[in-house]
Write a protein that binds this DNA or RNA. Structure first.
Lengths: 237, 237
DNA sequence: ATTTTACTCCCCATAAATGGGGAGGTGGGC
DNA sequence: GCCCACCTCCCCATTTATGGGGAGTAAAAT
């Protein structure tokens, strides 16, 4: 374990503004003596939020070209769980190769480690450390620090979720057991007739539950109601 | 950091069967001198998988009574990111109270810390440590070990995902951008007409996307397809 | 250069979901 | 004891979703 992990995490935990997170990324960059440290998050509303040491030029370029949609780091991390060494990713396509060349020209560095992080309600974030060095040096760096970085990424995301919570409040909307059963069965793909049969009630009665759940959830239709129940963690499929 | 974390994680990383995970939970229980250690996972197909030291009687009881749907630990962890001390959860309802009493009678312990873990395609897992002790002792335990436990939980899930990859690899389900747009808008409660209008295509065309998405997701109807897309983290509302 | 993938459009008919009413029974909480 | 939330049942008519076909263009991957 790195001796200063405690101190770094404490600084993170004490952050109260976005700028504090920004400063923390800069401190981390100095501390680990790497090229860049970035925390990046696309929230449930599609808003982007991030803190990091990439140059503004690169960020602008990235947004302008909509690289989010093709960046092999994003694509790769989205289907992985463990930290991803950029070398493990698929850079074979032409677009990926030119993207990588361009990234290097913007001073991103030739090495990178990105940790995917997933939170409630489908939240997805990335914590990235990049450097400019030979493969062997980078392998050593990962070997030494990956666990610390996982914990730091975790703390970053915890903080980001705290900020998010301040901006969007969500109503409790507690559904009755029968309403929850109805929502769950519908989410499993059963039709109303099947659901009513499974719940051993008439379809007429089932409709009352569905309607009640819809109104409680402020949903437009059954599909919407099921989607909201899922998003809010009221039901599990 | 606990001196034996390295050894424990290495043992985890070398696990090649489900029984190895089971043995690891038992080793962890001894190592931390706690009442129970459990890793539990409900995958995208709804299959349950787990390793842990709970008694078979409690597991059977839990499944029989379908406690998964009301367990405050599940509900609470599903909407949280950071490790959850069971005391932070909402035990105010009558059902929750009797559930807690019953759990204690089955020797689960009066204290618990559960770490929610989320993987690709909406995978959701829980890593739990329980104990029987006073609040202050438990607070100390958490203070001392929570970070180690996060890393252990991470390794557990990495291993579980490796196992999963072996058994079911067909659930890749790549939806095209238009299919994803359709699913997202439907999940937001738009009707087909509104969705088609929003996507600026004819409703006939929209139906092709919905049908394609349904088939790819193996869903019975639109509601089911949207639910699966949400569960697997393909779309966000 | 060829194949695959994605995107767009159109037809038919039937089954399903939705909108709005109303009514009676139970149990728990104040 | 009363009220509220929950559970159950039923009617009407209309809109919407679903099932199965087919077919052409354009871009991208191989």
């Amino acid at each position: 374990m790195h001796p200063n992990l405690e101190e770094l995490i404490q600084r993170l935990q004490q952050a109260i503004t976005l700028e504090d997170l920004q400063i923390t990324t800069e401190s981390l960059r100095e501390h680990y003596a790497v090229t860049h440290v970035v925390y990046h998050w696309v929230n449930s509303v599609g808003e982007r939020f991030g803190a990091g040491t990439y140059s503004q030029e690169w960020v602008d370029r990235y947004v302008e070209k909509d690289y989010l949609r093709m960046d092999p780091v994003i694509i790769g991390c989205f289907q992985r769980f463990h930290p991803v060494d950029w070398k493990q990713l698929d850079w074979s396509t032409k677009a990926a190769k030119s993207f990588f060349r361009e990234a290097i020209s913007f001073g991103i560095g030739n090495q990178g480690l990105t940790i995917p992080i997933r939170g409630p309600q489908g939240q997805f974030a990335l914590f990235t450390v990049t450097d400019t060095c030979p493969d062997e040096v980078w392998a050593d760096f990962i070997e030494t620090n990956s666990r610390d970085l996982i914990l730091i990424a975790h703390e970053f995301n915890k903080k980001a979720l705290e900020f998010e919570k301040g901006t969007e409040q969500q109503s409790a909307a507690n559904l009755s057991p029968r309403e929850l059963s109805a929502m769950t069965l519908l989410a499993k793909g059963l039709s109303r007739a099947q659901t009513a049969d499974e719940m051993q009630i008439s379809e007429h009665t089932l409709r009352v539950y569905i309607e009640a759940a819809r109104h409680k959830l402020g949903a437009m239709n059954t599909t919407h109601a099921v989607a909201r129940a899922l998003s809010r963690g009221l039901i599990v499929v």
